[in-house]
C-alpha cells in the first residue's frame, strides 16, 4: 500500500519537526516549568520515532524512564527551588550570540560530513526485526559486563543522591 507508506514517511518527518520545535522551546522559553514540559513532549516524540524505527521496546523504556522518572525528578526539583508565583527572571547569560555562531559552524561542518560519507546501508538490516527475547539474551550474554557495571553505577548514584540531598544536621533526620 504505497499511500500508507507515504503517510508513514511524512508522519515521521512531521514527528521530527515537532521534536525540534519542542527542543527549541526547551532552550528558549523563560519559564523553567514550561521548559520541563517541552522536554517531556520532545521525549515522547522521540519515543514515537523509535516506534517508527521498529524499536518498540526502547520506546516503552524511553517513556517509562525519561518521562516517568527523569522529567518527574526535574519537575520535583523545579517545584522545590522556584517560587510559585515568582517574577520571571533573565534565564540566559550573555554568551548567546557567540554560542549561536559557533554552533552554526559546527552544524554546517557536520552536515557536509554526513552528506559526503557513503553510509553502508544494507537492505537486510532494514528488514531485520529485534525481538525483546533477543535483546534480553544480548543483555544477559554478550553485554553482561556493562550491564553489571550499570547496576553498580545505579546503586552508587542512589546512595550518593541520598547522602547529598539529605539535611546535614543529624538530629533533623526524617
Amino acid at each position: 500500500m504505497p499511500i500508507l507508506e507515504m503517510a508513514a514517511k511524512f508522519g515521521t518527518y512531521a514527528v521530527m519537526a515537532v521534536i525540534l520545535i519542542f527542543a527549541l522551546g526547551v532552550v528558549t522559553l523563560r519559564n523553567i516549568f514550561h521548559c520541563a514540559l517541552c522536554l517531556a513532549a520532545a521525549l515522547i516524540g522521540t519515543a514515537v520515532l523509535y516506534v517508527a524505527f521498529r524499536a518498540e521496546y526502547l520506546a516503552a523504556i524511553q517513556i517509562l524512564l525519561y518521562v516517568g522518572a527523569v522529567v518527574t525528578l526535574i519537575i520535583f526539583a523545579i517545584m522545590l527551588t522556584e517560587h510559585l508565583a515568582g517574577k520571571t527572571v533573565r534565564q540566559n547569560n550573555s554568551q548567546s550570540p557567540l554560542a549561536i555562531a559557533g554552533l552554526l559552524g559546527f552544524v554546517a561542518l557536520l552536515t557536509v560530513v554526513i552528506l559526503k560519507t557513503p553510509w553502508p546501508v544494507t537492505q537486510t538490516a532494514l528488514k531485520a526485526k529485534v525481538s525483546v527475547m533477543a535483546l534480553g539474551e544480548a543483555l544477559m550474554g554478550t553485554y553482561v559486563f556493562p550491564f553489571e557495571v550499570i547496576s553498580i553505577i545505579l546503586i552508587a548514584a542512589l546512595i550518593g543522591t541520598v547522602v547529598i540531598a539529605k539535611k546535614d544536621a543529624p538530629e533533623e533526620r526524617l
Binding site: Q62, L65, A69, W119, A125, K129, V130, I150, L154
Partner: peptide, 23 residues
C-alpha cells in the same frame, strides 16, 4: 537500524545511555 551491525547492539547501548541519563 540502517547498517548491518548486530541489530540488538544499538538498542542495548541506548538502554545504557538512558540509565546513565537517569543517574
Amino acid at each position: 537500524k540502517y547498517t548491518s551491525l548486530s541489530p540488538a547492539t544499538g538498542q542495548i547501548f541506548a538502554i545504557f545511555v538512558i540509565a546513565i541519563a537517569a543517574t
